[in-house]
Design a protein around this nucleic acid. Structure first.
Lengths: 340, 340
DNA sequence: CTTGCCGTCCAAAGCGCTTTGAGAGCGCGG
DNA sequence: CCGCGCTCTCAAAGCGCTTTGGACGGCAAG
C-alpha cells in the first residue's frame, strides 16, 4: 500500500492525502478524518526512504560504534543506547549505527553523513584535539558530542559530566580522611574523560601539597581484569597507596578482588572510590563493602542527548547547547580514615 | 556532489557512471577507472535513500531493542552488537535500531519493515509461542532469529546455542561429582533460553533419579544484584544446595559475593558453574576462584548472524538456515566434589 | 454585478538513484 | 555493399513521497 493507492482508494489526490497525514492546515477536518480512518484500516505506512528523499529528513540519528576484531566492546555502550532509545522511541526516531574500525571513525562519520541516512550525528569517546568536531562543523549537520575534546575551542554542542570536578571532590574527601598516597585506576589514556579525571585527582592532591606518582596511575579499558591487575600492581609498590580511585565500577570489581586476595580490608586498610555510571547490572551499593561513588547516570545522559538532538532536528524548543553535569559524591562504606 | 554532477564533470551519462560504480560488465575498463578516480577526488557518496528507493535495498539490517523507562538494559546487548558490527562493517552495512517498549515489539517490527528502511530483520529474546516469527514469515523479508521459540514449528532460520545440552552437561558433571541438591540462578522466566536451560538441568537430574526443587530455582534479569539475592535465598534453605548453576557470569558475580559473605568456600562447600557469554568486561577465569563455565561467545554469534543475514540479502553463498551451536564445558576451580 | 479572498483540493515537478530499451559505432562475413 | 552481432553509451522511466503553484467554488465586500 502506497500513497498513490491510498489516494485512489479515497478518491483524493496524493497531495491532499499527504497533507492530511502531515497535519497541514489546508485540509478539511472531515476529509482528514476520512484519510486517517483509511490509514488505520489499510495499515498504510509511508515509505521512509521516499520520505527522506523528498524531505531530506530521515527520522534517525546516526552514531558510529567503534568495533574491530580485537577491540573489546564497551559495557557502557549498551546502557547509553538504552537512554537514547527511551527518548527516541517517543518521537518515532531510530538510530543508524555504523560500525567502524576505531582508527577509521572520521571517515565513517563522513560516509554516514554523505549517505543522507541520518538527520544528526552523535559522537563520543572524545580524544585530545579530536578531529571529528571540526569535521562535523564543516558537514553542516546537527551533531552533539558526548564529552568534550581537549585542546580545541569549546564552541560546539556537547553534554559532558564534570569529570575533573568529580574526581577532584572524591580525591579531596580522601585527603580529608588523611590519605596521602592515592592511586588511580583510570580509563584509556587517549580519551578526554580519563585525562580530566586524572587532572581532578592531581589538582586535589596539589591543593594538599601532594603529588600523583606515575606509578600510582593505570590506564586501561574498563574491564574487571584490568582493575584486578592494576590493584595488584599498586599493592606491590614499596610505598603502597592507602586509597584508590576507579574510573568505573567494573574496574572496582577487579580492584576489590585483588584487595580481598591480599587480605586487606576495604574502607580501613584501603579506601576505594569508583565512578558509577549506574549500570543496572552492577550496583555499587551491592558490593561486599558498599562502594563510595561519584555517580552520574549514563542512561539519563543518553536520554538527554536524544532529546536535544531530536528537538534540534525538529526545530522544537531550543535546548541549551552546552551542558556540564555535576556528578554526585555518594559516601558509602568503602571509604574511611587512612590507616596509620 | 550527486550522480548528475559527477557525470557532468566526467562528460558521461548518469547511467554509465552508475554502472561503472556498481560493477556492471558493459563499461570500458578505462572509463571505469576514470570514474573511480573522480569519485576518490570529489569524495562522492551515493545517497542511500535514493539508492534504496530505486533498488528497494537499503544496506541495513534492522533490530528492535527492547527499552522502557524502568526496563534494565541488557549487558549482553552491547557485546552482541559488537559481533554484528564486526561483520557488517566489512560489507558496508549498518544497523537500524528501533527502540521499542518490550510489550510493543511486534508492532515495532511491523513498522520497521513497512518503513522500507531495512533489508532484513533480526530478532532475539525469544519467548514461548513467540508471535514474531509468524509475523516475520508473513512479512516476506529475510529474517534471522537468535534463539528459538518454544511451541512453534521449527521452520524458520535461526542461530541458537544448545542451552538444554549445555545445562544438561553442566548438571551431569555436578551429579558425577556427587552433588544431589542443585540450584539454578536463571534468566527471565518468559524467555525461551531460560526455559531450555532449566529443562537441561531437570533432565540431567532425572537421569540420576533426582529432581529440581522449585525452591532451588530463581528467574531474574542478569544483574549482580539478583545473583546475590538468589544465592542468599538458596543458602537460607533448610536443605541447602551444594551446587549452583548460573545463567550468566554477571549473576555468578553476585552469587560469589553471597557465598563469600556466608563464609563458604567455592569449589568445596558450594560448587558453581556459570554460562559464559564471553564478555570482555568479566572473565570467568579471573574470578577469585576461577569459574567453571559453559562457554559460547555472544560476539561470535553476532558476527555469524550478520554474515548469514547479509549473504542472504546479497544473494551470496547460501549458508545453512538453522544452526545449533554447542557450548563448551570448561572446568575450572569453582567445581569440586560435593561436601559430605 | 464584479472583484478579491479564503478554504479546499489538485497536477506536476522534483528528490538522487537504478535500470530498461535503444542507439551509435565498429568490424566481419555473406 | 548490406546486414549482423558486439561493445559501449545514452535518454528516460520509474521508486514513493513532499511541496510548489495554481484551479475552482463560494462568499463577503465594493
Amino acid at each position: 500500500m502506497n500513497l498513490k493507492q491510498l489516494s485512489e482508494l479515497l478518491g483524493l489526490s496524493q497531495t491532499t492525502v499527504s497533507r492530511a497525514l502531515n497535519g497541514y492546515p489546508e485540509v478539511n477536518a472531515e476529509t482528514r478524518q476520512r484519510v486517517l480512518d483509511a490509514v488505520r484500516k489499510t495499515g498504510y505506512r509511508p515509505n521512509r526512504a521516499a520520505q527522506r528523499l523528498a524531505t531530506g529528513r530521515a527520522g534517525s540519528i546516526g552514531l558510529v560504534m567503534p568495533t574491530a576484531d580485537g577491540h573489546d566492546s564497551d559495557v557502557h555502550f549498551g546502557e547509553f543506547l538504552a537512554g537514547l532509545g527511551d527518548e527516541a522511541v517517543r518521537h518515532d526516531f531510530h538510530f543508524v549505527i555504523n560500525p567502524s574500525h576505531p582508527d577509521d571513525e572520521e571517515a565513517t562519520c563522513k560516509r554516514l553523513v554523505a549517505s543522507g541516512n541520518v538527520d544528526a550525528l552523535f559522537i563520543a569517546y572524545m580524544r585530545v584535539n579530536d578531529p571529528r568536531i571540526a569535521l562535523l562543523k564543516s558537514l553542516s549537520i546537527p551533531f552533539l558530542v558526548h564529552g568534550r575534546s581537549i585542546g580545541t575551542p569549546l564552541d560546539y554542542p556537547f553534554l559532558d559530566i564534570d569529570n575533573t570536578g568529580a574526581f577532584h571532590d572524591a580525591t579531596k574527601l580522601l585527603v580529608q580522611l588523611g590519605h596521602r598516597r592515592i592511586a588511580l585506576l583510570n580509563g584509556p589514556e587517549h580519551l578526554a574523560f580519563a585525562i580530566r579525571r586524572k587532572k581532578g585527582v592531581e589538582r586535589a592532591l596539589a591543593e594538599a601539597d601532594l603529588a600523583l606518582s606515575e606509578t600510582c596511575v593505570q590506564h586501561s579499558a574498563m574491564a574487571d581484569e584490568h582493575g584486578y591487575r592494576g590493584m595488584q600492581r599498586f599493592l606491590a609498590l614499596a610505598d603502597r597507596p592507602t586509597a584508590v580511585l576507579c574510573s568505573s565500577t567494573v574496574l572496582a570489581l577487579g580492584a576489590v578482588r585483588a584487595l580481598n586476595q591480599a587480605g586487606l580490608k576495604i574502607g580501613s586498610d584501603v579506601s576505594l572510590i569508583a565512578h558509577d555510571d549506574v549500570l543496572p547490572m552492577l550496583k555499587p551499593e551491592n558490593f561486599s563493602v558498599p562502594l563510595t561513588t561519584t555517580r552520574s547516570s549514563l542512561r539519563t545522559a543518553g536520554s538527554r542527548i536524544a532529546k536535544r538532538l531530536i528537538s534540534r532536528i525538529l526545530n522544537l524548543e531550543t535546548l541549551p547547547e552546552q551542558e556540564l553535569w555535576k556528578a554526585e559524591l555518594i559516601v558509602r562504606a568503602s571509604t574511611g580514615p587512612a590507616p596509620r
